[in-house]
């Protein structure tokens, strides 16, 4: 089994002029997952418009910042300094660029459309095409410093006003938990209390 329609890879390649990298897997029960990375984020709207004509439903979108690639070994004398590693399409893996994945449902199968955007970059809003993109994009904007271009209603979605924007960019890279102090206080009190063993 494979994703319907069968020529989807060709269609995607023809639409996304910057180039695509496409792979698909099928699990033991015949459910297909396809991953399509766009080289250029400017191909996004055209590609999504194509998917809409194919009857795809936008399930959701995921934004995140992939970890930086490990630093390359120091260059030997006389050699050119090594190029930094990049994602497909040329965005540098500096740990600050965004990977944006749009998950589409094609009658049960999943097509994930991925674009990479450099830190401080922008991405087009899909809300005019898919109403279901409204909330995920607003959420992306409050959790990351990513800007969604031409979003019809770019307001906060879930976060309390007391929490600063781009919460995940500030919090995720560090290994500590924000409220770890509360836990520490609890354990100190538990140690100080000599209650009945229970």
């Amino acid at each position: 089994m494979s994703l319907k329609p069968d020529n989807i890879e060709a269609l995607l390649t023809a639409t996304a002029l910057g180039g695509v990298s496409f792979r698909q897997t099928t699990d033991a029960k015949g459910v297909c997952s396809a991953w399509c990375t766009l080289a250029s984020s400017s191909d996004l709207l055209a590609t999504v418009a194509l998917l809409k004509t194919l009857g795809a439903r936008l399930s959701t979108m995921t934004v995140f910042q992939p970890k930086a690639s490990p630093p390359p070994p120091a260059p030997k004398e006389g050699e050119a300094p090594p190029q930094p590693l990049t994602f497909f399409g040329g965005v540098i893996q500096d740990g600050k660029s965004y990977e944006i994945a749009y998950h589409f449902d094609l009658d049960g199968d999943t097509l994930t459309l991925i674009v990479h955007v450099a830190s401080g970059g922008q991405v087009d809003s899909l809300t005019p095409l898919y109403r279901a993109a409204d909330w995920p994009e607003r959420e992306a904007m409050e959790l990351y410093a990513l800007v969604v271009r031409a979003h019809p209603n770019p307001q906060r979605l879930f976060l309390d006003p007391s929490i600063d924007n781009a919460a995940f960019e500030r919090l995720i890279p560090y290994s500590t938990l924000t409220n770890a102090g509360v836990s520490k206080g609890f354990w100190e009190k538990i140690m100080a209390t000599t209650g009945p063993k229970s």
Partner: peptide, 20 residues
């Protein structure tokens, strides 16, 4: 429909989990 997207890096902790 509940959909989960999980991304693991080389760590026991997931790098990103998103669900709709």
């Amino acid at each position: 429909e509940l959909i989960y997207y999980v991304r693991m890096a080389d760590s026991p902790k997931p790098e990103r989990v998103k669900w709709r």
